[in-house]
Simulated scan of single mutants.
Amino acid sequence: MPLTTTGELVARAAAEGRGVAAFNVITLEHAEAIALGAERAGTAAVLQISENAVKFHGGRLAAIAAAATAVARASSAPLSLHLDHVTDPELLRAAHAEGFSSVMFDASKLSYADNVKETAEAVRWGHERGIWIEAELGEVGGKAGEAPLDAHAPGARTDPAEAAAYVADTGIDALAVAVGSSHAMTERTATLDHDLIRSLRQAVPVPLVLHGSSGVPDPEIRQAVASGMTKINVGTALNTAFTGEVREYLATHATGVDPRKYLTPAREAMAGVTESFLRLVV
């Protein structure tokens, strides 16, 4: 199936009052698992490649982007290609050439004024090329290399009035907000602020994005979508499933050397996680 666009998937989900899940791709097996999970769930999904994943591949975007694109085109599920948590302007500019329909430009670590300035420039650049732009306001925290962040700390969460001004001043297409989740959680114990989600939904005219969804329990995710979240990002849950299967195989096959023996169950485990999240948000 031809690639669809993230903008189309998110707009359709928002109009129908449901969510669309976006999954992080690190290896070819991740992309294959996400496509398989989407096919089993009978719904669309977003394949997203983060700046950290690009760094893992030696700073070269082309190969992993081509692999994800090939998997998406071979799938019967509607899939889009998204570049996530981009801070490097050069990587942002590479998105268009590699076929990405959307980018999450992350200037959230800058001052508010600089965040607005840099994001607005990214939006201008992207919109001239038909690229949908997501950005972040607030502190989700938890990404590799960052100090631990209390998602409930004062000032960590996104303020609705500031969010409304930010969207107006930048022209972004979707807003990632801090409402109680955190990146890289391996246990699903996060509690979301659903009153804040509803306030943000009323305050801004663009779809809301939940980062750090791997650490959010199923009922919380369902309620988040009902309260106004649209794009639900999942990464660590895939890696937890992947690593668990690899660890289990190697623990009982100490002399095994064929990676297919453990990558096969690892890929299947990620497909199961993908299907579960997709059924959860729709």
Score class of each variant (00 low, 15 high):
A70N: 05
A113K: 10
N52W: 13
V123E: 01
A68L: 09
A77Y: 08
A122L: 09
F105H: 03
Y112G: 03
A120E: 11
L91Y: 14
R60G: 08
F100S: 08
E118H: 13
W125I: 04
S75R: 10
S102Q: 09
H82Y: 07
R73M: 11
K109F: 09
L83S: 07
G99K: 08
V71K: 01
S75E: 11
S102H: 09
Y112R: 11
R93W: 05
A120I: 12
T87S: 14
V123W: 01
V103Q: 00
A97V: 11
P89T: 11
F100Q: 06
L79C: 04
T69S: 15
K117G: 01
T69Q: 15
D84E: 14
A63M: 10
A66E: 14
A62N: 03
A122I: 09
N115S: 13
A97C: 00
T69G: 12
G58D: 03
R124Q: 13
E118A: 14
D106A: 07
E98Y: 00
S101T: 09
R93Q: 13
A120G: 15
V123D: 00
K55H: 13
G99M: 06
P78C: 10
G99T: 10
V103K: 01
R124K: 15
D106W: 05
A74C: 02
I64C: 05
I64Y: 03
M104P: 00
K55L: 14
L92V: 02
D88M: 12
A62W: 03
S50D: 04
N52T: 15
N115Q: 05
N52P: 04
V86A: 08
A72E: 01
A68H: 11
